[in-house]
C-alpha cells in the first residue's frame, strides 16, 4: 500500500493453446450454436410458414439435417480433443481435467476461496486452466458424452449406417425414445448455462489478471510475468515435476 512506485511487470509470451486446441474450441462453438438453435426448433418448431403449401418445402427436414450433420462434427471433434489430451502440450493434457491428485483438489479449493468466495489472499496463478475450470470442463465432457449417447441413440433407428446403430442400446436402456429424448433436451440446458458462465469468466480473468485471457483462444498466447518463471509457483499440474517433487523436496 505504502510503496507508491509502480511495479512494471516484464511479461513473457507463453504458447498455451496450440492450434488444434483453438480449432477444436471454435469448431465446438459453431456446432454447439447450430445444435442448440436447431435443437430448439426441432423440439418446438415455429409457426412461421403455416400458410405455405407442403409442395417443395423441406424446412424441418433441412433443420434436422443441419442438426445431424453438426452432431457428427461435434462427436468427432470431441473424440479428437480427447486424443489431443494425450499428445498435446501440458495445458491440453488430460491431467488438467481429472481430479485425481491431492494437488488438484487443493487448487480447486484455493480457486473456490479466491474467485468464488472472494476471500483476500495471494492470487492463484494458473497459466492454462485452473483446477476448478479443468474440473468443470471434465463435467462438460461428461455432458458431451450424454448428448452423444442419447442423440445418436435416438438417431439410430432412422439410420442404416452401422455407426449410429452402435448407440441403439441407449434408448433400450432408458426404456424407450420418450425418456431418451427428454434427457437429451434437459442436458442441452447445461450448455446454455455453461456458455453464460464460461464467457463471463473469460472476461473476469482477463480483467483481474491482465494476461490476455480473452485473446488467448485466438493466437494461443498468454502473457506471463517474468517472476513466475524464476519462482515457479504457478499451479499447472506437471506430472514429471510432480513425481520429482513427491520426494523430500515438498
Amino acid at each position: 500500500m505504502s510503496d507508491t512506485a509502480v511495479h512494471i511487470q516484464r511479461l513473457r509470451r507463453v504458447y498455451v493453446w496450440e492450434k488444434p486446441v483453438r480449432i477444436y474450441h471454435w469448431l465446438n462453438v459453431l456446432v454447439l450454436l447450430a445444435l442448440v438453435v436447431t435443437g430448439f426448433y426441432i423440439a418446438n418448431p415455429l409457426a412461421l410458414q403455416s400458410q405455405h403449401e407442403a409442395t417443395g418445402k423441406f424446412t424441418m427436414g433441412w433443420i434436422r439435417y443441419i442438426h445431424f450433420a453438426a452432431a457428427y462434427i461435434f462427436f468427432f471433434n470431441f473424440l479428437f480433443r480427447i486424443y489431443w489430451g494425450f499428445v498435446g502440450n501440458k495445458y491440453a493434457s488430460w491431467r488438467q481435467f481429472l481430479p485425481i491428485s491431492r494437488k488438484f483438489f487443493k487448487e480447486m479449493w484455493y480457486v473456490f476461496r479466491m474467485d468464488i468466495l472472494m476471500l483476500k489472499g495471494r492470487e492463484h496463478m494458473s497459466i492454462g486452466h485452473n483446477a476448478m475450470a479443468g474440473f468443470i470442463y471434465f463435467l462438460t465432457f461428461v455432458v458431451f458424452l450424454v448428448q452423444c449417447l442419447t442423440g445418436f441413440g435416438l438417431y439410430a433407428s432412422t439410420s442404416s449406417w452401422w455407426f449410429p446403430k452402435l448407440f441403439a442400446w441407449v434408448p433400450a436402456m432408458l426404456g424407450g425414445d420418450i425418456l431418451t429424448r427428454q434427457v437429451h433436451h434437459w442436458a442441452m440446458w447445461f450448455f446454455i448455462l455453461f456458455v453464460v458462465i464460461h464467457v463471463y469468466l473469460v472476461f473476469y480473468h482477463d480483467y483481474v489478471e491482465g494476461r490476455g485471457e480473452m485473446s488467448s483462444m485466438g493466437g494461443g498466447w498468454k502473457f506471463i510475468e517474468e517472476e513466475t518463471f524464476t519462482r515457479g509457483h504457478h499451479q499447472t499440474p506437471n506430472p514429471e515435476k510432480a513425481k520429482a517433487q513427491d520426494g523430500p523436496v515438498k
Binding site: 403455416s50 405455405h52 424441418m60
Partner: peptide
C-alpha cells in the same frame, strides 16, 4: 407435412 415444417397449432 412434418418434413415441410407444417404443423397443426
Amino acid at each position: 407435412y412434418y418434413d415441410a415444417g407444417l404443423f397443426v397449432e
